[in-house]
Design a protein around this nucleic acid. Structure first.
Lengths: 100, 100
DNA sequence: TAGGTATATCGGGAATATCCGATATTATCA
DNA sequence: TGATAATATCGGATATTCCCGATATACCTA
């Protein structure tokens, strides 16, 4: 976890919102027709609709979050599902408490 | 505390270093001739020398950190002393644990 | 009051981020 | 195989950040 990249990833309103939506997908997104639940994450298209930005922008934002280690992705068929990596947030919280 | 501004303030290598230096001024800076200890903080000039950037840049960086609520300043004579606001880091840590 | 020191602010060139449309890639399905 | 759907990548216009030198402001001291 490269701290500077984490903070840069968090320095954008939309990316912060995405992380918050992913915290409670059931409450934030409609049920996905192509999967049973949200175990594997939320697909890019749903996140894009909710964010109200273009597909390319949201795809890029998700890869920024992933490079920072804040989310992880799983490809299933034609969909890529993104979900939070909770361990990264614990680590970040500890970093702020003790190292910063 | 405006979270986005906090993360923007933390998205810079030098500003992160400054915060770390201010965590232990005795270890990070030479004794200041004009004050007894570091109770009131560290003056801009010392921080600037250590950062190796120009005076104007460091002054601006400190005010970015201050606007984000991460440090506070005290003017004494011709010196401005900056020190950390520990409460802001606790608050940030909690925010990451529960809100992000 | 004049001159020196510490800091803040201003204006700007270069680098980076934001966000878009167009296009490429990958998977599905008839 | 060809059409379609989901996502990723590319190229670029615009906005923001980085960091500087020049200058302004505030304070101290002779």
């Amino acid at each position: 976890m490269k701290q500077l990249d984490v903070f840069k990833a968090l320095s954008n309103k939309t990316r912060l919102e995405i992380l918050q939506w992913l915290k409670d997908p059931e409450a934030s997104f409609p049920a996905q027709a192509h999967t049973s639940g949200f175990e594997v994450g939320v697909c890019v298209g749903e996140i894009q609709k909710k964010a109200g930005l273009t597909q390319s922008t949201v795809s890029e934002y998700l890869s920024i979050l992933q490079r920072a280690g804040l989310v992880e992705s799983t490809r299933v068929g034609q969909w890529t599902y993104y979900k939070r990596k909770e361990s990264a947030f614990e680590e970040l919280s500890k970093f702020i408490q003790s190292d910063i």
